[in-house]
Computed example of a mutant assay.
Amino acid sequence: MIAFEHLTVRYRTAQKEKNKTTVLDDISLTVPQGTVCAIIGPSGCGKSTLLKAAAGLIKPAEGNVRLDERALDPKKDCIGFMPQNYGLLPWQTVRENIVLGCRIRKNWQDGREADEARLQGLAQKLHIEDLLSRYPRQLSGGQQQRVSLARSFLLRPDILLMDEPFSALDAITREEMQDVFLTLWQEQHVTTILVTHYVEEALYLGQKIVVMGAKPGRIVRVFENPLSGSSEKRSTQEFFTMGRNLREEIRRISRGEEA
């Protein structure tokens, strides 16, 4: 379980400014163990900032982030982070990029049978077993995304933070990668927070959906989503109606009309 407790983040918008802008205001949210929480809202509402605070990249002005009833510690806890640009190092091969996180955590050893078996198993599931010696520049966007997913799931993190990971892909590839993610997630059930600006993606992947508002960033609504993870329900009238309502709510929030 990951919990945000009265989290407030402030920063200066310019170096010469004395006053700080409140980016996130009194965020309290609990994501149960082994679930996917999708965060959606208008641009500028602090979605990515919330992920960075969870990853320990930003120090909050107030409040804290807890993991299983204790303060989250990025030095001790294993955190998987997937940025929008996939986070691949261009001078390293696909194989080197995949094992990078494990090497940083010092839980990888080249040639160790169990480690190599896990790597090969993930590569096969993601259909990148023939790409391990290539470099990121030699891959398509979808292939780079598969490498990023392989690195995250090879790590077996305590929590996985995903910042609009599929946004740079075309619509068809994006849907394919959503299914790939679900297949891997169903094996590990890692607690995941997914930031997205696609309504359908939030409905398909998020068991819990958080709608945020801006200026300052705050939680407007949280609801459980019974439609997540089902490709059959994705084509139903219920899914379409829920997506339309969620999209309209985000428009109202953008116009400052929420209650």
Rank of each mutant, 00 (worst) to 15 (best):
K18Q: 15
T35E: 09
S43P: 05
D73M: 06
L57E: 09
C78T: 13
F240S: 13
Q143E: 13
E17I: 03
F166M: 10
L89H: 15
S48I: 11
E62L: 06
F81R: 02
L227G: 07
L194K: 03
A202D: 09
A55E: 08
V220K: 12
S140V: 06
I98N: 02
R156D: 13
I58G: 03
R137Q: 15
L51W: 10
Q33D: 14
A123L: 02
K106H: 12
D68L: 07
L149F: 04
Q207G: 07
K215S: 10
H189W: 04
I128D: 01
A202E: 07
I2Q: 06
N64S: 14
T13R: 15
Q145K: 03
A53T: 08
R134I: 07
G80W: 02
A202Q: 09
Q186D: 05
Q237V: 10
R95Y: 14
G111H: 06
K20V: 13
R105K: 10
I40L: 12
I159L: 01
E258F: 12
E129L: 06
D163H: 10
H6E: 15
V180A: 05
G121D: 11
G46R: 01
G87C: 09
D68E: 14
V36C: 06
T196G: 05
D163Y: 06
I193M: 14
D110F: 08
E258D: 15
T241N: 13
T236M: 13
A3F: 10
V147G: 03
P216Q: 02
L182S: 02
W108G: 02
H127E: 11
R244Q: 14
F4G: 06
